[in-house]
Design a protein around this nucleic acid. Structure first.
Length: 637
RNA sequence: GCUGGCGUAGCUCAACGGUAGAGCAGCUGAUUUGUAAUCAGCAGGUUGUAGGUUCAAAUCCUAUCGCCAGCUCCA
């Protein structure tokens, strides 16, 4: 038998016969559950025979790759259970997702919650049998025949689209599925899973195709992780910004303006506080704010390219026999301001910020709460600079982004650099320089990032910023996009040091993104318990009886006089009731005033959450507020 | 947009062919209360909208508006 060399982790090289299974070459570390191997960078089953010398890495069950395999195998287990319980149901595809998996079935009836339970139960039985999962390679035509014979029309269609000569099948017990793999060695490893929901989905995601029945589920290496995950989902449900927005009286919707929020006084306070915060940063980072029109002649949208590419998302109106479009973006306006006079290289960079209201028609099925609306504004800005200034501008932007996300207590930040797509505009050399400049800025600022190859916009490369909220869900907030197209379309120029006419680069950027969407994220991240600097009501004065109202009014007045947002609860209710209401409204402090406080000229503060502070003077309390605020608004460097 | 589900008092929900109810919120009064709900009374609805079926419709049917979930991160 021919011998091959296998490099395993730890620098060891093992000599084994060709055809030895990956899992049998030896050197598997004890203590970790190894469920698959990576051979020369490709994930394979442990039972995959090794044909030639190679490099092997182990994939542990609790590694990201291992969890992905686990979920894929769980999806198969579910499909096996479904077909066992409901003969005649066809399988289609069953991939993994960010935190689980789904499998689409062809069945006339949707699955009921009771049926889901039965499926779960059957899955547990099948997992308990610890069925070996075996890979098998068969010629394509043979596979087509096999699935045709089983009445699996969708599988037949899928295989027909595969160009390869052979395809792989996976068998577990008497069940078989077409799959590229890899999979777990056996079903017994699957123990911590849960089917979470059912939904309709179109075959290949196309609404013209047949409707399939999708079952979502999730699976983890250990029960504890599954429990934690389900707890986070439950917590996310409780913190749903639509629910909290109503409860905290922040915003509402009305059928007269679908998918367009109405911000109530408290919501408007938070909204404006976010805008004011960004304005403060703009002063430090050298931005200038502008105000621009809402509605423009359609000619402008033709010139900007929006009419051709974005028309379906725009609102139009006719007047004076002219067609006008409501702006979905601010960029064209900013090019007009830029071009309103001759610009010199000495003027650049010019950074124009705009909180203008934008309207985008979103299809009725995709709007949701504040996260996807039709009327919104962004912390939008456009930077006009020379190509040589890109790197410095991006570096400064990175500082700003970091400062902002820190302020809102987002711990994890993921950064994606999207590069040139197949269809692109502008010179190749310009692209390469720009991508290099973006990468260089990320590196000088020590920002870890991943490259999304080919995901850039047709007009320029971009960097996207994804933050993780308290429930570990990712939200894409910030984006920085280079644009070589718009300056061209609007014929922007500047006079260089040597007197020649040059084209500036435009950088589109937003840090919070849409203020509406950011508020939704913030509400869910904080559970509606806003930090002091954002709390619409920072403290509420509550009296023990109405005897203390005169003094309480004075306390409230003194704090208000210093600019604090304080309300007095004058209702003739018991203290416990008023405390409860303040707590439910998530007000940072309840200030209790009884006879003792009146006598001593003090107040007794109760923090949101229940901690009681010792009685203190109004002055001392104001000082405490100032300290809280100082802590919250401290800058990072 | 498509598929499915849901629209009942300000809010959360009940009634599921036979006179629309409850709790909370609101209003009035009593209570003067020490850190998450004091008591009583009153008021509140063309059941999203428009048609239809029926002796009778919140309930069944049709349309429409709105809300919710989902709609290929590759077998």
């Amino acid at each position: 038998m021919e011998k091959i060399q296998v490099n395993v982790p730890g620098g060891e090289t093992l000599q084994v016969s060709a055809g030895t299974h990956a899992g049998d070459v030896g050197g598997i570390p004890s203590g970790r559950r190894i469920v698959a191997a990576s051979v020369d960078g490709r994930a394979v089953d442990l039972a995959r025979p090794l044909a030639q010398s190679c490099e092997v890495e182990w994939i542990a069950l609790d590694s990201p790759a291992g969890i992905d395999i686990l979920r894929h195998s769980t999806a198969h287990l579910m499909a096996q259970a479904v077909q066992g319980l409901f003969p005649g149901t066809q399988v289609t595809i069953g991939p993994t997702t960010q935190d689980g998996f789904y499998y689409d079935f062809k069945r006339d009836k949707p699955f009921s919650p009771e049926e889901l339970e039965k499926i779960e139960e059957r899955m547990r039985e099948l997992a308990g049998q610890d069925l070996p999962i075996a890979r098998e390679e068969v010629p394509r035509d043979e596979a087509i025949e096999l699935f045709r014979g089983m009445g699996e029309d969708y599988k037949v269609e899928i295989i027909s689209d595969i160009p390869d000569e052979t395809v792989s099948l996976y068998r577990q017990g008497d069940w078989v599925d077409l799959c590229r793999g890899p999979h777990l060695p056996s079903t017994g490893i699957i123990e911590a899973f849960k089917l979470t929901s059912v939904a309709g989905a179109y075959w290949r995601g196309d609404e013209r195709n047949e409707m399939l029945q999708r079952i979502y589920g999730t699976s983890f290496p250990a029960r504890k992780q599954l429990k934690e995950h389900l707890a986070l989902l439950e917590e996310a449900r409780k913190r749903d910004h639509r629910k909290l927005g109503k409860e905290l009286d922040l915003f509402s919707f009305h059928p007269a303006a679908p998918a367009s929020p109405f911000f109530h006084p408290k919501g408007a306070f938070v909204y404006n506080a976010l805008v004011e915060y960004m304005r403060g940063l703009y002063r430090r980072y050298g931005y200038q704010e502008v105000i621009t029109p809402q509605i423009f002649d359609a000619g402008l949208w033709h010139r900007s390219g929006h009419y051709e590419h974005y028309k379906d998302n725009m609102y139009f109106t006719h007047i004076d026999e002219r067609e006008f479009g409501v702006k979905p973006m601010n960029c064209p306006s900013h090019t007009f301001i830029y071009a309103s006079k001759k610009r010199s290289y000495r003027d650049l960079p010019i950074r124009l910020a705009d909180f203008g209201r934008l309207h985008r028609y979103e299809k009725s099925g995709v709007t949701a709460g504040l996260t996807r609306v039709r009327s919104f504004s962004q912390d939008d800005a456009h930077i006009f600079c020379t190509p040589a200034q890109i790197e410095g501008e991006i570096a400064s932007l990175l500082d700003m982004l970091r400062e902002v996300y820190h302020r809102f207590n987002f711990q994890d930040l993921e950064v994606y650099l999207s590069t040139r797509p197949d269809q692109y505009l502008g010179a190749l050399e310009t692209w390469e320089r720009a991508e290099a400049a973006l990468a260089a800025s990320l590196e000088t600022r020590n920002v870890a990032y991943e490259i999304s190859k080919g995901d850039g916009a047709f007009y320029g490369p971009k960097i996207d910023f994804v933050v993780k909220d308290a429930m570990k869900r990712g939200w894409q907030l910030g984006t920085v996009q280079l644009d070589f197209s718009m300056p061209e379309r609007f014929d922007l120029g500047f006079v260089s040091a040597s007197g020649t006419d040059e084209r500036p680069v435009m950088i589109h950027r937003a840090i919070l993104g849409s203020i509406e969407r950011f508020m939704a994220v913030l509400i869910e991240h904080t559970g509606g318990a806003f930090p002091l600097w954002l709390a619409p009501e920072q403290a509420r004065v509550v009296t023990v009886t109405d005897q203390q109202l005169p003094y309480a009014t004075e306390v409230c007045g003194r704090l208000r006089h210093e600019g604090w947002r304080v309300e007095l609860d004058e209702r003739n209710e018991k203290l416990g009731f008023k405390i409860r209401e303040a707590q439910v409204a998530k007000i940072p402090y309840a200030l209790v005033i009884g006879d003792k406080e009146v006598r001593n000229g003090t107040l007794s503060a109760r923090k949101r959450g229940g901690e009681n502070l010792p009685p203190m003077s109004v002055e001392a309390f104001a000082e405490r507020l100032r300290e809280d605020l100082g802590r919250e608004t401290e800058r990072v460097q």
